[in-house]
Amino acid sequence: MPEPIEPYEEGRAIAATGGGGATDLAMAEAETLEKTPGGPKGTGPDKKPRSLWSDAWHDLRRNPVFIVSGLIILFLVVISIWPSLIASGDPLDCDLAKAQEGSQPGHPFGFNGQGCDVYTRTVYGARTSVTVGVLATLGVALLGSVLGGLAGFFGGAWDGVLSRITDVFFAIPVVLGGLVLLSVVTSSTVWPVIGFMVLLGWPQISRIARGSVITAKQNDYVQAARALGASNSRMLLRHITPNAVAPVIVVATIALGTYIALEATLSYLGVGLKPPTVSWGIDISSASQYVRNAPHMLLWPAGALAITVLAFIMLGDAVRDALDPKLR
């Protein structure tokens, strides 16, 4: 009777290989456990292991996008702290007789409508843009992640109320809101603009922080900490925050570029910063009327703005890739 025996033998063969494979695996595992003091991935015990953050940094250093955007941002930060390093003139020292004149020796970008040196003003304008961008982002990230993170962690009524408030803020068009709110402000400092950005920007971060805290909260290691008797603050600070902060950092970096662009937009519309503050937005605004006769007055500050915004967005993109474990 060959026919009924055949499947029987096949079954045996499969069972035998399966069993053998399992033993091999068991032995391999036992070996890693007991015999190799170096450990699972073959690194020596003295070699310091890399955390996920240092893994991300390791990736970033090899990413050309990060290097290029990082260098641009570094340069911007340096010249916004010490603009006199590369521009010897005074941005407010203007000579109406030279208005709209083109490139000349000592004045490579020419002069603007008021006869001010465009090169000096472009260099000095970086300070305003970087200040507005960095402070607005810090404010937005702090306010948004604290409110959103607490809502995500505690849930309940507070979460419901906060979510509805975010919905309301999302419904306000940013430029319209700026026109309405900032037109009543007379101060010529950067603070009203930063305040406005924080006011309208926090819901975006708050939503992201809430979502990522809810995701992190459901992990078993948070339950494990709770089972050990950990307090809420320990769970939030030691377990949830480090694992939920990455998306907030990424979105904040990208948002930084958009805040710089928004400052320029608001200044262009005449409700943002006001002269005598030196800002790319103000210069673009005043140059736009003469764009046919003297395009250089518009192109230099606009180009600087475009490169800055692009650099921050590229940086955010690179950071996001480096912090995403799925791409590793």
């Binding site: 996920l52 953050w53 992990n219 078993d220 290691y221 339950q223 494990a224 089972a227 030691r238 694992n243």
Partner: peptide, 13 residues
């Protein structure tokens, strides 16, 4: 308690 999934029950950081 010992948890089910050893991949999520230890804080990766």
């Amino acid at each position: 308690m010992v948890f089910q999934d050893p991949y999520t029950s230890l804080n990766p950081r």
